[in-house]
Design a protein around this nucleic acid. Structure first.
Lengths: 194, 194, 194, 194
DNA sequence: AATGAATGAGACTTCATTCAT
DNA sequence: AATGAATGAAGTCTCATTCAT
């Protein structure tokens, strides 16, 4: 009853060879983020991630201690990447004026931020709102964001700007999308006036 | 309207009386919100809600078509209640000056908004970010919020203020909580200057 | 992807009707004991019990909170039945003399006790040796055994006789089986001499 | 035989030195017994034993053909050690009288036998009750026990005494522990009267 | 109108074992 | 000789949903 039958299954699919795959953890994390974008943390499962990453189910708990560890690794990577992008934009800006323009593009969903990123952000926030472990991730993220903004603005302004960016990004996605560029630009200008 | 009914069951049979319970749907919705606050949408299940509402499991699919319908009903109720609270605060304010003070209290987590509300908000946003049906809920909520703010401010300002409120509320919960009152007040003042 | 396919499986087996089956818990317990006899607690699994009881796998955790609860229920039933059998034998004995003869038959594996019973006993002991919850089951069992023996013997003798019965039953199964009747009878007689 | 070897690995590479560890099999067996005492055969797994023995998981199937082989090796070692202890006690006894006293101490849980030993004994019995391979281990154990007792008693008495010892040891652990010394001494005396 | 019983699907996880190195 | 990586099978359990009553 025990070990029979396994070989009878797939004449079509060749026996999958035992793969040596040093980047597997990375691929799993990326697949995890993909699944979250598509179905939310609520819809996340080992099975779906394994399928998306094209790894056997057993790989999931081999590489990550459990669903939580996977989630944490995925969101840590996401948060790091997101703040790196903001920091790069701020580093490219040669003046507060250029920084303001970059923020505006950022908020209006230009090159820097897209829906995928906002979706992941809302999921991370939902976790962080109830769980200190994820709150640590958002803390670190926000600290890095402020540091990026402080390349051009004083700390108090950076803090307020960061909150405004957050709020505007959410509204762009969750409101009817009519957030007009002119008003956004004006708000940024008002809050960051020298 | 008579108060008879429940007590009429025979004392002989130990049969649990079929409860006549007209508020049951309401109770289930509130229990659903409680469960979400405690465990997130990810941790929501019919069983947990039924236990929290003290109703039989069979009641769940009797009163709501399915998990999704329950979730939708719960978040609709939540969003309506949240915007009613903001509207009441704006209605109480006799001047833009008082309105600004009320917003400040709102953001700093005074009487108007508490962690519970922010938790539910993040969960709703996470749903809305991926699902048009929930996006309709946030649309309506934001529209009502803008209308409330337009009691005292012009539409463009209302829109920006609403975004700022959002961002600040999130930062209060998800950052290290050091959002200082003075800066918040200044930001509100700057954005809503006449 | 979700609910498709289920009906394609068995053209051979008719769709199993939802059964109303009030004795199901009992049947599961008996099947559980059967599986333990065949494969030990170590080899016990929900799947095997469900198959043995001819119930769907989902029934297992519906009727019993978990593997432990099932195990406990099964051994409680077993211990109760075992002591009832000894008590019945002692009740049938009209004199200490007849009681001694009954014990001897008991130990030598006559009508009263068979291998199945010894197997279950050893499994229960293994659990009880490490777990207070199961120890409570053996306590109760031994108390009932002593009470049965006290129908014919004084308490101290009953206690010693019970221990001897245990040891002899084990030796009969686990030694080479050459435990000779004459010596058993002599031991019983010596320990229970008036 | 030189003491070199392990320390020869380069200080440059952080490679964990391949341990040369001739006692590893022994250590694994002892760890296996520890795990059984703590979690039962039911809770035994290669992973737990490897962790307890502080050896890599791959070592397990390298040193032992499988779970069964490991279990068998562990219980063989245990049974041998247990009977050696009884034999040593009987060898130390200079007369039947001293032998009786030693048995009494043995049963009452003195120096000779402790709970750990009874736990392992019950686990072994549970295996032996269903599996001839383990039954061979108990056969050999009991034969050695009888031989030890025959240093002072005739074969028939030795056999009965061994059964009584078994039963009393079990009762001490699995009953409420009130097995009184006086009765035990009397029972031993009665069964082994010259 | 309402519910307890029931069930199939699928969740996460642990596991013994294999194998390339 | 020894092991870290890997995997398929199977484990327990939770679940949304159905249905007879």
């Amino acid at each position: 009853m025990s070990a029979v039958g396994a070989s009878a299954v797939g004449a079509t699919s060749a026996v999958r060879p035992r793969r040596r795959d040093p980047m597997r953890s990375e691929r799993i994390i990326e697949a995890c983020l993909d699944v979250i974008v598509a179905e939310g943390v609520d819809g996340l499962s080992h099975r779906k991630v394994a399928a998306a990453a094209d790894v056997p189910l057993g790989s999931m708990t081999y590489h990550f201690a459990g669903r939580d560890a996977l989630l944490m690794a995925a969101f840590e990577k996401f948060a790091r990447r997101a703040s790196e992008r903001l920091d790069a934009a701020m580093a490219r800006a040669a003046s507060p004026e250029e920084a303001r323009a970059a923020i505006e593009r950022h908020v209006l969903g230009g090159v820097l931020i897209d829906d995928r990123e906002v979706v992941l952000m809302t999921e991370l926030y939902a976790l962080a709102a109830r769980d200190e472990r994820y709150k640590a991730v958002t803390h670190a993220w926000m600290a890095r964001s402020r540091a990026a903004l402080e390349r051009h603005f004083d700390p108090a302004t950076a803090r307020i700007l960061d909150a405004l960016i957050e709020g505007l990004a959410l509204h762009r996605l969750l409101d009817d999308g009519s957030g007009e560029g002119a008003d956004v630009a004006r708000a940024i200008a008002l809050l960051s006036a020298d």
